[in-house]
Amino acid sequence: MKNPVLALTLLMLSCSDSDEFGSEKSDVIQLKGISYYTPRANELYLYEDLRLVNSENSVPFRLDSAKYYLGDYFWIIDSDTIRSNKNPHRASYGEHFVKLVLIDVYGDTLSDSITVRLNEQLRIELLSPIDGFSDFSKTDSLEFRYKIGGVDSWEQASSFVYVSTDENSLWKEENILPDNILKPPLDDIYFWGVKAFTEQDTVFSKRCIGKFC
């Protein structure tokens, strides 16, 4: 009499095993990191490295298709929350905090953040002597003055003044004017220029002075 009951119990218990979830079979979403690209001024392209990993393989996927797997996601750029994955994002020059927050269907969150630096283009503004200046007789020395712009806070900029009577050889190292003062100016034509550079950029600017310019 007991055997059928025992058999029934074992049957029911064995069926119940199939209702138990084994975590080893589940797919796990991994966020390996985020990256960015700034091809043009004020344009920020953001990319995420997402993987769907299980015991057998690891498949990359885009955030655009993550709606099938995720409950929600959003980007945070500085203090702005952006619920879109549409590139490019508009961003000004400077340093920005970028964070990607993912929320799965269970309400768990996963995030990664980076600091994005949008470089301002390095530029040189030559101040004096002005273009075409030729009255050397009234002075026994010429001071070359210029201004460098677009140096970001995280950048270190260097610059040199070059002076030569030959335009083609202006940017040679021996033409660097250490104290930016030429004395006395004896020739009728001079080419002078400034080379400014940072780790990322190098820019040049030149002028011609003298009566034969």
Binding site: F21, S26, D27, V28, V105
Partner: peptide, 20 residues
Amino acid sequence: YQKARNIKRELEYPSFGGEN
């Protein structure tokens, strides 16, 4: 068992393996 089955079905979605 039905409750366990329902939860198991929910757990088939990918996750981060978080607390929830």
